[in-house]
Nucleic acid binder design. Structure first.
Lengths: 211, 211
DNA sequence: ACCTGAACACCGTTCAAGT
DNA sequence: ACCTGAACACCGTTCAAGT
């Protein structure tokens, strides 16, 4: 049942002293715990027990717990970038792709709320910034910028500074995503996709009547 | 120098067994610690030492640490509500007031980043929901809804469902605020007010050229 | 080169006892 | 009614020692 790759990520065999491939196993175990039980349940002792190693084995592969969380966040931005690319390209780009990208963004956050939250909170308690994490975050953002530039070239979107335009749109989907996973929409607006679509539609037409 | 009110919030006199007015003092000390050093520095032992009481004195006034944080969050929404009201009414409502409200929102977050973050993260680790906190959050949201209804009555804003419209706009300013305090704007767009104004301006005109 | 186990300095929370 | 102090079960991290 287990693939070749997943064997190496499993629990350490009790008769062995070394795990063999601990770093990716730690990452996977951390991700699983965060997804299933939230960040608060992630302790080094629990991760160690999960993999059949001691609570301090981690320190050979990560500087500390914050570095493990940074790696989790980095993996999240990689997943998000792929989701955005799919949402943009699959419906054939243009307006449909733009909406598809927005929906894909918020859907990723709603389906992985704890993971998403780690992605946007891990920067805070880290003294030194993590260049690899920042690069992965910039990569996800770039998908949006590239899409906007294409839309501008096709004379579909106004030719403002693409960076500023992208920040504005990122803020919208990020805001909707945060409100959704904070449970602030459930009562008034349970249909999150609907709010995304509404938001992007208002982006098209504007909301003001008078000049 | 100290006002009548602040005397009671000071440190307990060492010759006294009872503090006298511990609950508000705990709240103020927690808020001060969060503002100055961030949530991670908030420990019950530190708060107790700050006020000259034991680390467990808190339990006569709050159920646990999460309840203290919920009270901090509640106070934050009260402050935010007043800031929004000021931003809306001071420039004389209308378009200027709408922009003023958006700027006031993001400015509050940027000036109180740790406090703002607590307001939007405290719901998560609490098992039981806090009705008083939710009411205070709803109160701040209502300022925006009321403003939109007034703008609709003045034929300035399209007559969509005010709740949905308000959620959309809340998401924008919340998103900009989160990006700003996460340090994700600093490089590309250090002028946060400018991004808010740009966003609200694009809200007016829309971003699309073709129908 | 990688991992363990004991130890250290923390933390939130409980509870009997003090005022 | 409010507060203390010792105790408990946790936690991240260090470090000498093991393979």
């Amino acid at each position: 049942m287990a693939s070749k790759g997943s064997i190496r990520l499993a629990k350490k065999r009790p008769d062995r002293y070394h795990h063999g491939d601990l770093r990716p196993a730690l990452l996977e175990a951390a991700l699983r715990t965060i997804q299933k039980q939230g960040v608060h349940a992630l302790t080094l002792r629990a991760v160690g027990k999960d993999l059949g190693v001691s609570q301090t084995a981690l320190y050979r592969h990560f500087a500390d717990k914050a570095a493990l969380l940074a790696a989790v966040a980095r993996e999240g931005f990689r997943m998000l970038r792929l989701a955005l690319l799919g949402g943009w390209e699959q419906p054939g780009k243009r307006l449909e792709g733009f909406v598809g990208m927005g929906v894909a963004y918020v859907r990723f956050a709603v389906e992985n709320p704890s993971h998403y939250r780690v992605m946007f909170s891990v920067n805070l308690d880290r003294a030194e910034r993590d260049p690899e994490l920042e690069a992965e975050g910039a990569g996800a953002f770039q998908v949006l910028v590239d899409a906007l530039v294409e839309l501008q070239r096709a004379e579909l979107v106004r030719r403002d500074d693409p960076q500023e335009l992208a920040l504005f749109i990122w803020a919208i989907v990020h805001g909707v995503a945060m409100l959704a996973i904070d449970g602030r929409l459930q009562k008034a607006h349970p249909d999150v996709d609907g709010l995304v679509r509404y938001s992007l539609e208002r982006l098209r037409t504007g909301i003001w009547l008078a000049p």
